[in-house]
Design a protein around this nucleic acid. Structure first.
Length: 619
RNA sequence: GCCGAUGUAGCUCAGGGGUAGAGCAUUCGAUUCGUAAUCGAACGGUCAGCGGUUCAAAUCCGCUCAUCGGCUCCA
């Protein structure tokens, strides 16, 4: 659900851009791009050119691929058009007239767009340049790349607008073409593939600069880069794409996340499960995954003439656990959690670091409950989610409530009950939310939570889904007070989403500077000379025995080099020990956040470490 | 999977039909050093893999794999 590719989600922190004006600039920018393309590359067909969060794109149909050099040339041409201050004119047109013009130009995509606009709607076209100069309507474009050609330019597009009044209103120093990519006509991979040129555009150079800075910042924090630098994890060609190796330091962070998870879940009334990684294919037939989820599943494997399936989800296993015994209403709610590792087939082109992989571990849980328990259970999940996210440093959320989609299972009244339960829980929690009408799963409504990271990007992690489908398919039951057999409601929820993705988000959020409680190495001791090595070892050992993650720099490098390495490895606390410290039995402490903080005793240091660890903050 | 780009030492990268290069890292030697890089030497590569063109391929061509930017999809 979260697009792992975050560039488009980056919202630059700029001095209050005017959204309406930006929209116009970007929209016109897209037109100017299309005009430039058709001038320099005659025969290219236009399709659509909408605005995006940071700019615009335009999709073109052209046999030859656009090269990075082409983008530069196009940018130059766009600047010419901007410099020429050509008027942008809105004009209401009749369907017949515009259809004829489009047909004459053989712009079949435009014709398709026109055909899709309902009868009776006002049709407008936007013209760049002076019609009078061209003499006739339509594309009067020249392939002449000389600068003299610009005065004759005239271009139009069927478009609802709005636009700026003149190409001169686009700030020539506040836009840039960014990349070219493949995109399908109307987003359907069965349709022809078009070439999409992405651009960014702003009101002024400062805003553009802020956006580029934000982009740099995102690049600096890229978890793939940091993961390699800090030796946290790897993904290896030899093993296959999308399969994650957690290296000792990354594994330490994961262990700490898991320990936190275990502790909070046990405290929250959950019980923990372990279930297998494969199961007989029949289980997946019963659950419906074999029909509805086949394309995301690995191929079946044959074991003694039986078909087995590597698991893409944990739910059926939890359901079977429920079903293994007769349940009373007194047993409910059952809250069962598992760090369940699942494998999903993902097309090779979509894999992305830790954010999109083929094998990952969900912090999965399923709650089986009575209808009247539903709202309270949801609220419990919201509380646990809030506590967890705030402990990991995320305090801003965006909440979505997704309701019944067209294609769905289950009776109306039970959908209504479940949706109301979600709403009630959100209200009880006091969270405002956005309703995503029809965005629910086919088996029930859901709440999704997006968290905001340190540079303003939103990431979806948590999801809470009510499920009517699996209890039905597996005929789950409990014995009601009146002795009748009733169907429990099932809630599926994950807080981190997947440990891999959450780890990736953590790395990017902290830019590798983990808070003390999560830092793989909390303290490194730097002996100035060989004579202090023993003292450093002794201190490290004492720290380790008291539960801190401490180690001695064994390199024998000079102090400056050791400090540099500790900094590059983002180790929160470096302790320098020289002759003076050994003599005085003290420690010279340097934190990554504050630099040299002076001389402390071991007890003082411990006290400071404990404060930061308890606060889950950096030291 | 599709479109485009990329793949050279552990890492970051240069080179470009005819002995494979640098910095960092590693190892060894010297240095024993006080808050972000001590000096020197050595080691290290079937130039992603397979096939083709050529007297000769890391270099040109084709296929495969992986990665990157997107599309579609998604925890």
């Amino acid at each position: 659900m979260v697009s792992p590719v975050t560039e488009s989600q980056v919202t630059a922190d700029v001095s209050a851009p005017n959204p309406e004006k930006l929209e116009r600039i970007r929209h016109t920018c897209a037109h100017v791009l299309a005009m430039a393309v058709q001038t320099l590359f005659p025969g290219t067909k236009v399709t659509i050119g909408p605005t995006t969060d940071n700019g615009f794109y335009y999709d073109f149909d052209r046999a030859e691929p656009f090269t990075p050099d082409d983008l530069k040339t196009l940018e130059t041409q766009m600047r010419r058009i901007i410099k020429a201050k050509l008027p942008v004119v809105r004009e209401v047109v009749s369907r017949e007239a515009i259809a004829a013009e489009i047909a004459q130009l053989d712009e079949n995509y435009k014709a398709e767009i026109l055909a899709g606009i309902p009868e009776g709607e006002t049709l407008t076209r936007y013209t760049i340049g002076d019609v009078a100069l061209s003499g006739i309507g339509g594309f009067k474009l020249t392939a002449d790349k000389s600068k003299k050609a610009q005065a004759q330019q005239f271009w139009w597009d069927l478009c609802a607008g709005p636009h700026v009044e003149s190409t001169g209103d686009i700030p020539a120093d506040a836009f840039a073409l960014e990349s070219v990519a493949g995109a399908y006509w109307r987003g359907d991979e069965n349709n022809p593939q078009l070439q999409r040129i992405y651009g960014t555009a702003w009101e002024n150079a400062e805003q553009l600069k802020a956006y580029l800075h934000q982009k740099e910042e995102a690049k600096r924090r890229d978890h793939r880069k940091i993961g390699k630098e800090l030796q946290l994890f790897s993904i290896q060609e030899e093993a296959g794409g999308g399969l994650v190796f957690w290296h000792p330091k990354g594994a330490t962070v994961r262990r700490l996340i898991e320990e936190y998870w275990r502790q909070t879940h046990l405290a929250g009334g959950y019980e923990l499960l372990y279930t297998p990684h494969v199961a007989n294919l029949n289980l997946w037939k019963t659950s419906g995954h074999n029909d509805f989820y086949r394309e995301n599943m690995f191929d079946v494997m044959e074991v003694e003439e039986q078909a087995y399936q590597l698991k893409p989800m944990n739910c059926p296993f939890h359901v079977l656990t429920y079903k293994s015994d007769l349940r009373s209403y007194r047993d409910l709610p059952c809250r069962w959690a598992e760090l369940g590792t699942v494998y999903r087939y993902e097309r090779s082109g979509v894999l992305h670091g830790l954010m999109r992989v083929r094998g990952f571990t969900q912090d999965d849980a399923h709650i089986f409950c009575l209808p009247e328990q539903l709202a309270a259970e949801i609220l419990g999940v919201l509380n646990l989610t809030e506590q967890t996210m705030s402990d990991f440093g995320f305090n801003n959320y965006e909440v979505n409530l997704s309701t019944r989609p067209e294609k769905s299972v289950g009776a109306d009244d039970i959908w209504e009950l479940a949706t109301q339960a979600l709403i009630q829980a959100l209200n009880d929690k006091g969270w405002s939310y956005v309703i995503d009408e029809g965005g629910g799963a086919f088996y029930g409504p859901k709440i999704d939570l997006k968290i905001q990271d340190a540079i303003g990007r939103m990431w979806q992690c948590s999801t809470i889904q009510v499920d009517f489908n699996l209890p039905e398919r597996f005929q789950l039951e409990y014995i009601a007070p009146d002795g009748s057999r009733q169907r429990p409601i099932m809630v599926h929820r994950a807080i981190f989403g997947s440990l891999e993705r959450f780890f990736g988000i953590l790395i990017e959020n902290y830019a590798g500077d983990f808070p003390l409680w999560l830092a793989p190495v909390q303290v490194r001791l730097l002996p100035i000379g060989d004579e202090q090595r023993q003292y450093a070892q002794a201190i490290a050992q004492q720290l380790q025995q008291r539960g801190y993650r401490a180690a001695v720099d064994a390199s024998g490098d000079r102090l400056n080099k050791q400090i540099r390495n500790a900094e590059l490895e983002k180790i929160p606390v470096a302790i320098i020990v020289g002759k003076q410290e050994v003599t005085d039995q003290t420690l010279s402490v340097r934190t990554r956040q504050q630099g040299d903080i002076g001389t402390l005793t071991l007890a003082d240091l411990q006290a400071r470490l404990d404060v930061a660890i308890a606060a889950k903050s950096q030291i």
